[in-house]
């Protein structure tokens, strides 16, 4: 093996080793990702029980259980946090060593991203199984839905990672990007379907959600796995995901060189 695959696998091994060094902190971050879907599930279950017919727009306790269990899994597999990292790296000059290497710094950050997801699966898989045993989800999709959910999750992860990275490049102009990251997270909560299934949002918010990338990160893969979409909707959704991914790559190709022209390489 040579070239980029060899380099990236070496970076991945390094990232996994680094994650294992800080396994306690990494575990807490991963568990935090379980907590807020669990809170949302509890609240929506209570609301559904009080609602007429025991359901809200077709979502009863079993549907909410399935939705938020899948939400835990999808939000973990599509997680990205570069908008928080990049600000620190630019402000302190810690980006410089990565810029001296003969490959894009993005590959190093991607190896951290994938390593986090792999390492924390050891902790999260039993937790997801436990949650499933407690909330008794109802999976109604066929095998085709589960197969289609795989590219939907992978493309969701690509969209989230690439758009976060593009957003992180704001750090070259404003230095601090944590607030931008919080805004992004808010968008994911509301328009991505983390707080509630998009079908429960008011029509205006659903229209706004349709114009933003968030639903392609969280809501779409969940709905595919739940078997709530027909074949044509799945294909159309996957095409939309590919377009959002290509758009992110196009933005990066313009924004990255412009960002480097701004880099001050402080503190070196």
């Amino acid at each position: 093996m040579s070239g980029l695959p060899r380099a990236w696998l070496a970076l991945l091994r390094r990232s996994i080793a680094g994650m294992i060094q800080y396994r306690g902190e990494v575990a807490l971050w991963a568990i935090w990702g379980v907590i807020y879907p669990a809170v949302a599930l509890t609240m929506w279950n209570a609301a559904a029980r009080d609602a007429e017919g025991g359901a809200i727009r077709g979502f009863g306790p079993p549907e909410f259980a399935t939705y938020f269990l899948l939400s835990m899994i999808v939000q973990h597999l599509t997680a990205a946090w570069d908008v928080h990292e990049m600000g620190w790296q630019v402000r302190t000059g810690h980006l410089s060593p990565a810029l001296l290497r003969p490959l894009l710094p993005m590959w190093g950050s991607l190896s951290d991203n994938v390593a986090y997801k792999l390492v924390t699966l050891v902790i999260l898989a039993p937790i997801w199984a436990l949650v499933a045993w407690i909330v008794q989800p109802r999976f109604e999709g066929g095998w085709i839905d589960y197969v289609a959910a795989v590219p939907a999750v992978l493309l969701g992860a690509a969209i989230h990672y690439l758009w976060q990275y593009n957003l992180a490049l704001i750090a070259f102009w404003s230095t601090r990007t944590n607030a931008v990251g919080e805004f992004w997270f808010g968008g994911k909560l509301l328009f991505g379907g983390l707080m509630a299934p998009l079908a429960l949002l008011p029509p205006l918010l659903q229209t706004v959600a349709a114009l933003l990338p968030f639903q392609w990160i969280i809501s779409f893969p969940i709905e595919v796995a739940m078997g709530r979409l027909g074949g044509a909707d799945i294909v159309a959704g996957l095409i939309c995901q590919v377009l959002w991914t290509l758009a992110a790559i196009a933005v990066f190709r313009v924004a990255w060189p412009a960002s480097l022209r701004r880099y001050g390489a402080v503190g070196v």
């Binding site: 070239g3 070496a10 970076l11 091994r13 003969p102």
Partner: peptide, 8 residues
Amino acid sequence: EVQMSVYG
């Protein structure tokens, strides 16, 4: 080890 892989 990483350095050798990254620099080919």
